[in-house]
């Protein structure tokens, strides 16, 4: 399963998900939810991801790959002054 948002791409090997739900508990931004129909964890709210990679770090079966798409949306040092 591949789930993408503007900032991040999740690649989830659903066949290997053991159902431990550690990713659901680990994510403090509520990205991961258990999908009873697919019988695996899914990144239901990918927009909320803050790129901590701890879901991938804790996944017992290495099912999760989090691929950053945009790390810095706008570099403050490159932005011009707004108020002259």
């Amino acid at each position: 399963m591949i789930v993408t948002s503007s900032d991040v791409k999740f690649v989830v090997d659903t066949d290997r998900c053991c159902g431990c739900k550690v990713c659901v508990r680990r994510c403090i931004e509520d990205v991961w939810h258990w999908d009873p129909e697919k019988n695996c964890a899914v990144p239901k709210y990918p927009d909320e991801c803050v790129l901590c990679y701890q879901c991938e770090m804790d996944c017992k079966n290495n099912c999760i790959e989090v691929i950053p798409q945009v790390v810095i949306k706008s570099d403050p040092l490159l932005n011009k002054p707004q108020y002259e």
């Binding site: 949306k73 706008s74 403050p76 040092l77 932005n79 002054p81 707004q82 108020y83």
Partner: peptide, 21 residues
Amino acid sequence: MEQVVFHLDNVIVKSEKSIQA
């Protein structure tokens, strides 16, 4: 709200003008 923090003259260097904006 996110746009506020991308600009140094919003967050770090403030003035009456930037604060009011």
